[in-house]
């Protein structure tokens, strides 16, 4: 651990990685909480995988892969939102289709790109050590956008996440807020791709929030705790990965996954204990 801290002190790429991880945790804590309470994890998975299509096309035409990712993420989020609002029955088939078709497009374009030098692995599994200062500014910008939107529309987004039917009866533009939420999921996916890659995004989006859900009493606190947990996981993951030179994204996800399992067992155990105590008292 001390070795890692010393390395952070002296190497700029590690500092960038650390800052990138912390910034990504903010978006992932806030939007991940919505994904967990609204139970749209599968939809978020579809969006994150279809992003490879946008990255491949952008790379083929010599444009910024992250720009392509952003366009693809927002486009597929809007498409899926529209599908859900119009033909509810076929939602999961269409998510699955978009998931696979997006990746297929990406792989085709990448394979056709002259001078096959793209590190496909770094898109799929991320490479937090490659985060540069431009990436950091972009992440900070996305965080500000998310924070601003949620601060302005917290109650409305809460109502739409909680009970769409009631929100609609109150005259809230439910479709607008729902699509807004999906667009924020999309930009968060792009934010996280740089840290853990598009295959592992879904874990970092849902695990911290799912752990937080075991302990908190409100969506706001869930966001806060999930953000702190995300930060903890990225820092610990990076530190563990540093010395044996393990892939950082995968290590971060494993730290999050193990923590989730531990928390799940602990909270179930706590619940059982409480129940037993109640039964003891009532006897």
């Amino acid at each position: 651990m001390t070795e890692f801290l010393l390395a952070v002190w002296s190497y700029e790429f590690l500092q960038n990685a650390l800052i990138g991880g912390l910034l990504a945790s903010i978006g992932c804590g806030i939007i991940g909480s919505y994904v967990v309470v609204k139970r749209i994890g599968y939809l978020a998975g579809g969006v994150s995988h279809s992003v490879l299509g946008g990255m491949g096309v952008a790379f083929f035409f010599g444009m910024s892969p992250l720009g392509g990712a952003l366009v693809a993420a927002v486009a597929s989020a809007l498409l899926l939102g529209w599908v859900r609002l119009t033909w509810q029955e076929q939602e999961d088939t269409l998510i699955g289709a978009l998931w696979a078709v997006g990746m297929a497009i990406g792989i085709l374009f990448i394979s056709r790109t002259p001078g096959y030098s793209v590190n496909l692995m770094s898109y799929l599994f991320g490479n937090i050590l490659m985060v540069d200062s431009a990436g950091i500014w972009m992440m900070a910008g996305i965080d500000l956008l998310i924070l601003g939107t949620v601060a302005l529309c917290y109650q409305q987004l809460l109502a739409v996440a909680f009970d769409e039917e009631f929100a609609r009866l109150r005259g809230l533009p439910v479709t607008f807020y729902y699509l807004l939420l999906l667009c924020m999921v999309a930009v968060t996916v792009v934010l996280l791709i740089q840290v853990v890659g598009l295959i592992l995004v879904i874990a970092l989006l849902t695990l911290p929030a799912a752990i937080a859900a075991h302990y908190v009493q409100s969506l706001g606190r869930m966001m806060l705790l999930a953000t702190l947990l995300g930060m903890l996981f990225t820092v610990v993951g990076l530190a563990i990965a540093y010395r044996p030179d393990l892939p950082a994204g995968a290590t971060i996800i494993l730290v999050a996954g193990v923590s989730y399992l531990v928390s799940l067992f602990a909270s179930n155990f706590r619940k059982r204990l409480k129940l037993e105590r109640q039964q003891m008292r009532s006897v």
Binding site: R39, F162, R170, L172
Partner: peptide, 29 residues
């Protein structure tokens, strides 16, 4: 009700949702 029973929300927050809607489309209570 369409919401899931384990949604992290208090009774007061739930009741306050009756106050949402036009003319105020964003902002708090």
């Amino acid at each position: 009700p369409l919401f899931s029973r384990d949604f992290p929300i208090t009774v007061e927050q739930t009741v306050l949702m009756g106050r949402l809607g036009s003319p105020r489309l964003f902002g708090g209570y």
